[in-house]
């Protein structure tokens, strides 16, 4: 929630104000700053006290710029989901700071089926964030829900179906609609296409690309599939054992990997 608003003192020297303005302009360009963040989980303990602390994320430092798709690659178990939880505010970092410059991000998950409540219809799932938000009446909510469902190409005949009657691709489209219905500016995509067929993968990636420009979004795109990352992302972070070992534009990293680990990953993806 900590929008980075710096109060400038009216009586401050003009040079200081100019400096501040430059700083503000720079920050306006960012949607997220992750500053030297470390963190992990506490396990065991008695009545919530004690227990051992296991650090999973070590001194992770990066930014997400406005309008970009930032890839995050790394094997499973490197702490990608722990980092995601911290960015979403579901887990407090032990050290460092996470600064959001937009509304809290939304997330789409790998397994589209488990991201939709099996007890409710498609329309309900997409409307629920608006009901919780509570600012719109029923008619306005329906209008927005239908508009969003059309935008992400969910056919009207399944609007009143339950998730298990949908195909994997449709389920993921509905998840995307539910994540975007409150118009966030920043979306975390946690392996959003890994569970889907290749042809469906392409359609969903195309949809995400289109939505970025239509709705002015920035993405953190988590994947273990380096080909998908190359296809979609502008910049990429390579994560290993809880650390960012390499970052740069996709071309830089793919053409001239500096780290041995990145080379291995790229070789494995060929």
């Amino acid at each position: 929630m900590s929008n980075f608003i710096v109060q400038t003192n009216q009586s401050a020297a003009s040079t200081a104000a100019a400096k501040e303005n430059a700083r503000q302009a720079q920050f306006d360009d960012l949607v997220l700053e992750v500053k030297h963040v470390s963190g992990g989980y506490r396990e065991g303990g008695f009545f919530g006290r004690g227990g051992s602390y296991k650090e999973v994320i070590h001194d992770v430092d990066f930014v997400v710029k406005h309008g970009e798709i930032l890839g995050l690659v790394g094997e499973s178990g490197t702490g990608k989901s722990t980092l995601t939880k911290m960015i979403l505010g579901l887990l407090e970092p032990e050290k460092g700071e996470i600064i959001h410059h937009t509304k809290r991000p939304q997330i789409i998950f790998q397994d589209p089926y488990s991201s939709l409540n099996p007890a409710y219809t498609v329309e309900w799932a997409v409307e629920e964030p608006l009901r919780v938000f509570g600012k719109y009446d029923a008619e306005e909510r329906k209008r927005r829900v239908h508009e969003m469902l059309r935008r992400v190409d969910v056919p009207e005949e399944v609007w009143h179906a339950k998730p298990d009657e949908l195909s994997g691709g449709q389920q993921q489209r509905v998840s995307i609609a539910a994540a975007l219905i409150r118009r966030p500016r920043f979306l975390i995509a946690d392996e959003p296409v890994s569970a889907l067929d290749v042809t469906i993968q392409m359609q969903i990636l195309k949809l995400l690309k289109n939505l970025r420009t239509e709705l002015d979004l920035s993405y953190l795109f988590i994947s273990h599939d380096l080909n998908v990352v190359y296809e979609l992302c502008d910049r990429v972070l390579v994560m290993r054992k809880g650390r960012i070992v390499e970052q740069g534009t996709v071309d830089e990293v793919y053409d001239h990997p500096k780290e041995e680990y990145t080379k291995q990953l790229l070789k494995a993806a060929e």
Binding site: L88, L90, R104, Q106, I107, F109, D111, S114, S115, L116, N117, A125, E128, P129, V132, F133, A178, A179, R182
Partner: peptide, 17 residues
């Protein structure tokens, strides 16, 4: 820990809801 419950938390739904 199902994703849809995590999503509900993220959208700011109350625990009772």
């Amino acid at each position: 820990d199902r994703n849809y419950i995590e999503s509900a938390r993220l959208m700011g739904a109350s625990s009772a809801r």
